[in-house]
Design a protein around this nucleic acid. Sequence first.
DNA 1: CAGCATCCGCTTTGATACTG
DNA 2: CAGTATCAAAGCGGATGCTG
Lengths: 210, 210
Amino acid sequence: MRTYGQFCALAKALDVVGDRWTLLIVRELMLWKRARYTELKSGLPGIASNLLSERLRELEEAGILTREDAPPPVAATLYALTERGRSLAPAIRALGRWGAPLLAQAPKTDEVRGHWVGLPVELYMTDAKPTAPPMTLQVRTADYPVTLRIGNGEIESEIGTAARPDATISGPAREVLRVLLKRTTLAKAKASGVTYRGDRSVLARLKPAA
Amino acid sequence: MRTYGQFCALAKALDVVGDRWTLLIVRELMLWKRARYTELKSGLPGIASNLLSERLRELEEAGILTREDAPPPVAATLYALTERGRSLAPAIRALGRWGAPLLAQAPKTDEVRGHWVGLPVELYMTDAKPTAPPMTLQVRTADYPVTLRIGNGEIESEIGTAARPDATISGPAREVLRVLLKRTTLAKAKASGVTYRGDRSVLARLKPAA
DNA sequence: CAGCATCCGCTTTGATACTG
DNA sequence: CAGTATCAAAGCGGATGCTG
């Protein structure tokens, strides 16, 4: 491993997570909680297969993630963050907040994944009615579905479907994200292909966090 | 410039500051406020000269820093962060906090620069007596001197000497840093070559920030 | 001397192919 | 599906040279 060899906390952090793709792999694991190799690859468009496998090995050695063999029926390796890995959340949040304004000028050719919407919603939005009973919003875009659980003042995102969501929002990921982040209204977004079914008050519970 | 091509705030941030050395250059500019090329290079041991010049050009294009020619007498280029560049502070802080535990196992061969102590002190310490009049601590290590101004609940570090500091701490950078971060006592540090002259209450004003 | 630009050998990354 | 193998291209580090 190439290191900076500097007695500096920032340099030490970059020694571990400063390589290309590394923080994006951590992002994927934050969203997936537990993911298999191909799921990670699908969320990292453009990564070379050998690079992903090399990074996963380095991150395991650094104690950022663990690999565990799934139980017999499916026979696969599952990757998950360790506590140390999850503690990267503040850094990812800070970098994400810094980078968010750049999304406005993002080229249309940028790759989008439906499950990415979970990250900004968790990072930038909060529960507007912490004392109300928890609600569930199902997000459906082109690829993986995402379930948002809003309650107790917190928002959690999880990849997958919910049994009985209070509402469902569907459409192109970029437009759906704009609605969830309150960058546009549902009415305007409908023209861009966004549809919403169910309880409108779920959407009303999303509030920008400071 | 190589980009990830992902519609994701984190990826966008890494497109700009994810290259090798880039965040360390920003760190240097946070400490120097305004620095010339050779000053930057001295704080980035190991960087190739052409890489530094390339990164500076990229960062200027990205609006992270500006370059201005110093007034005639000295004829040099001065680099300084823009507001956008300074807004990377939360990200650097978060990454630094994450990396700090790794310093404990840092090899003795790691490079150290005296002015680096300014960063952790600004990031992790706070003014224990916000209402007391401001005080000044002069830090002297092998290379550049650093002035710490403690007052109004804040700590500011600046490279350079103060006219009449309330106290002066000198010695090897690593040991001085341990004293300032309260990882050891002044008495114990004296055995490692740390000396302290002046008002002891300056040191008492440094308190770990949460 | 400050601030690069050039050249060269080495390492890392990217794209694709291949295997249990 | 979950990687490993291969190889070309790009990036990096170190040395050196150039220009005010």
